[in-house]
């Protein structure tokens, strides 16, 4: 009975959403959008692209026009990692035991793979304003290298205090660079460095610096979350 009721409600909701997709001016049909009628047309205009100087237009929105939004996003991730640490963390922590014993080949092979993962993640972070990617996927890759070490070595325990320090420093520098915009320019997170030539590695002003900080912060936060899930409170031996 409850399942039938749920099915009816979801079916009605889906029908309402599909019927709402009419071909009006506010919501055109799929693939028939005219970008010059939308606010996105402004992001694609030549003066605004040159003002930010980023080749990747998504990055120019995320860290150029909507940096304040990104600051809020990073704060949400920080609060959720804080919540995970609050729920799962304790004073005495030991790591969870693996069900299998990692052999020599797995340990050595994982170290080689770790180097490749870290190099790729830093490449993705540094080229966030030129190519697809950026601080958020690159930070997730840094965290995945920590997960790899946890799974491949049964004695590995990450330096969680170092990650906490890195996270705090990166987050503070992010805000400090934004505040410097009030000194050297007119607004919070204003781009006060020269934007350079579009497509160069050293271009787009403060955007590459901000993306490196975002990458380090996201990587250390997700690594902290992984560490919290793979440890448990040490039981007192009575």
């Amino acid at each position: 009975m409850k399942k039938l009721f749920g099915l009816l409600i979801t079916f009605a909701l889906g029908l309402v959403i599909i019927l709402a997709l009419d071909n009006t001016v506010n919501f055109p049909r799929f693939g028939e959008v005219n970008l010059s009628e939308r606010i996105s047309g402004l992001y694609l205009s030549e003066t605004n692209v040159e003002e930010v100087g980023s080749a990747n237009l998504v990055t120019s929105i995320v860290l150029g026009f909507r940096t304040f939004d990104t600051l809020g996003e990073v704060t949400v991730l920080f609060i959720s990692s804080l919540g995970v640490a609050f729920i799962l963390g304790g004073t005495k922590q030991k790591r969870l035991d693996l069900k299998f014993k990692p052999n020599f080949m797995l340990r050595v092979g994982s170290n080689i793979l770790l180097v490749i993962i870290l190099i790729t993640s830093f490449y993705i972070i540094l080229h966030g304003h030129l190519s697809p990617g950026g601080g958020f996927p690159g930070g997730a890759m840094i965290a995945s290298s920590v997960l790899l070490l946890y799974l491949a070595d049964d004695r590995f325990r990450s330096n969680i205090k170092g990650f906490k320090v890195l996270e705090g420093v990166a987050g503070s520098l992010f805000v400090v660079i934004g505040l410097l915009g009030l000194v050297f320019a007119t607004a919070f997170f204003a781009n006060y460095l020269p934007t350079g030539i579009i497509g160069n590695l050293l271009s787009a002003g403060i955007i590459p610096i901000l993306y490196v900080l975002v990458g380090l912060k996201v990587g250390s936060e997700i690594a902290g979350i992984i560490d919290n899930f793979l440890t448990e409170e040490e039981e007192e031996i009575a």
Binding site: Y43, S80, G83
Partner: peptide
């Protein structure tokens, strides 16, 4: 293609990761 929805989804994915972890 419109870059604004992609930027918004980038934000939403990160927040989705945070809520799922919590």
């Amino acid at each position: 293609v419109d870059p604004l929805p992609q930027a918004l989804v980038l934000t939403a994915i990160v927040i989705g990761v945070g809520t799922t972890a919590l």
